[in-house]
Write a protein that binds this DNA or RNA. Structure first.
Lengths: 350, 350
DNA sequence: TCCCATCATCAAACCGGTTTGGGAATAACA
DNA sequence: TGTTATTCCCAAACCGGTTTGATGATGGGA
């Protein structure tokens, strides 16, 4: 509760000198500085952050906004990203403001943060293919970084994994094992990463001459439940021959697909193959699934810390074009993928 | 970027009038108010939040601090709580600042937030049995709410589940089924909820005359991995006869215990019984485990929204003693619990 | 017609820091 | 000793809102 002025008059100094002493400016005497610091601690002085912000124009915070409708906060991928981000920002002495936009208008909360000057930068997560937020922020020349990439042409700072490479490799692996009926259980339609993954999947299957019926490709929330329902519907075979392999956009989806396969008595890795993208959620380890899951792997936490660094650079004035990273994805072959059943996999059944 | 003064001079009014017009004060004429609002929208005026805070003394934000060392943000229970909290706060037009304290000193970040006036209230999560944060905040008479309860006697606002009732019921259920060698796989030692659960477990087992060796009770992080390791060590039987039943502090732990049991060829619900507390994480549904898990159930998301309401009330001046809630916990019996094997469960083997 | 409410508005102070532009010592140099 | 350069500190302005106290303009009642 002590103010700078109180502290100053207590010391018989001017507020200006005390301010400089505490902020490490060179033009105050060493003896004076020590006296000031000692007194500030004794009186529990702490600069009022609102006043400082008003004077300096910096807030020391960065913002992030979720749409409550999308329930993104519940998504474990998302929160793990948040964890990395928070740690990375804390290391730079920045705080993170999170705001859940309850109502429809997605633009309003951005105004709230950007126009009112309450944050120094923004983080945009889970962008759509053409994302309004990116357009708005670019237009106002406000510092921001994106987790993911959109189809737009404006240069902005982003961190993304090589979704195309990962899903091309995953699809090719299955095709090489002889699978011709492959299903893609993907993330929500409209999100950029899901579109990139679907494009890679379609490109590779088309190149191999595989006919993929529309019902084999689904876009939805990435939960165990959805994985189960999609796989159960397809494996039931009511609408046509079931797939022999699944490519999943997350390990949670794969878990559901495995449950559906298990219920039908299908052996994963023999009767049906499953591969998934693994964001390496610490409490969900694909190597412990039974059977151990073949995955394309890229830790989502690293995205958080990397984006924190990028945002700091961006706030510091770095050009967006210099802050773009696409990280490669590892393909880890384990036990959930195998040769297509009923063909020459073992060399005799053909 | 337009300021209040600019807007005012543009309108030929004083800043005072414009401020009142925008903030809905009754002493400005209706015609003037409309004129002001119209102009403010046309010029994209948005009050600078730092300036407003400085003038009003309110920040419109509440804070929450994690210790990075504890890795709480990675804990899915925790983040789901965060989700509920965020939604609850957004409904009250509050933002949440989250700060990860990288280094050891737990007091420092509190100073940072409280003494500098950057937040109007604080949320304390995962309290220890005697929590320093609660002591500090109480002493400064700063508004805060706690998720959980400590052993302290100071009256503060909290929301907690009936850990004692839940774990007494769970333990009694197993004892009633004839189990005499029961293991408790608990959360981290030192945290209040874990202590409450352990106390209930010990009370009920003692009342039933069950001898529980020290190795049957473990305190650690609540991950699948830890659950697996604890159960594997006990079921190995190297240190003595293995337990016939497990009480787990989370469904993640139970998942690990199930994996350990499965690896040894034990049938869950017959050879070994498992019961867990279920915080109802949307992506981890205990009714879908195989077998479906018997649980004590209480959605952790509700804690978030309830605490948001409490904190708003507390900031508004409500007395802490009026803001204390302990919610009951449901016992849901499913397939993972059954009579102890090798006794009279089936009527013939004794 | 005069007086008193009521309404609508304004000038100025204030919140608590930071920053600019000097100015009075002291030190360095001729 | 006189001048110039440093060193150290201060008074005042400023950031952009909100809030107090006062004032001019209108309208109703006597």
């Amino acid at each position: 509760m002590t103010t700078l002025r109180e502290l100053a008059s207590h010391l018989g100094l001017s507020p200006a000198t005390v301010s400089r002493a505490l902020n490490g400016f060179p033009e105050v005497g060493e003896a004076t500085r020590r006296r000031v610091i000692e007194a500030s601690e004794r009186l529990h002085y702490k600069a009022n952050s609102s006043a400082r912000r008003l004077a300096t124009g910096k807030s020391g915070m960065v913002g992030m906004i979720f749409r409550a409708s999308q329930n993104l906060l519940v998504d474990p991928h998302f929160v793990d990203f948040l964890a990395g981000l928070s740690v990375g920002l804390a290391a730079r002495d920045l705080d993170l403001i999170i705001h859940t936009a309850a109502h429809g208008a997605p633009g309003a909360p951005y105004k709230r943060f950007v126009a009112s000057g309450s944050v120094d930068g923004m983080i945009v997560s889970a962008p759509a293919l053409e994302d309004e937020r990116i357009a708005t922020l670019t237009q106002r020349d406000f510092p921001f970084v994106v987790h993911g990439r959109t189809a737009e042409h404006v240069p902005y700072a982003f961190y993304d994994i090589d979704n195309d490479g990962a899903f091309a490799a995953a699809t090719a692996l299955l095709a090489d094992l002889g699978h011709r009926r492959i299903s893609l259980v993907n993330g929500p339609a409209g999100l950029a990463f899901a579109a990139q993954r679907a494009a890679a999947f379609r490109r590779v299957t088309a190149a191999r001459g595989l006919a993929i019926p529309a019902r084999f490709v689904s876009h939805d929330e990435m939960s165990e439940d959805i994985g189960y329902r999609r796989a159960a519907a397809l494996l039931g075979g009511a609408a046509g021959p079931p797939p022999t392999a699944f490519v999943c956009s997350s390990t949670l989806l794969a878990l559901g697909v495995m449950r559906a396969a298990g219920e039908r008595g299908l052996q994963v890795g023999a009767d049906v193959s499953i591969i998934a993208h693994d964001d390496v959620l610490p409490h969900l380890r694909s190597e412990h699934f039974s059977p151990a899951l073949t995955v394309t792997r890229s830790p989502i936490r690293e995205a958080g810390t990397a984006l924190a660094d990028m945002l700091v650079a961006r706030i510091g004035g770095a050009a967006p074009a210099t802050l773009q990273r696409i990280v490669p994805v590892d393909l880890v072959v384990r036990e959930s993928t195998g040769p297509v059943p009923g063909t020459g996999g073992e060399g005799w059944s053909r």
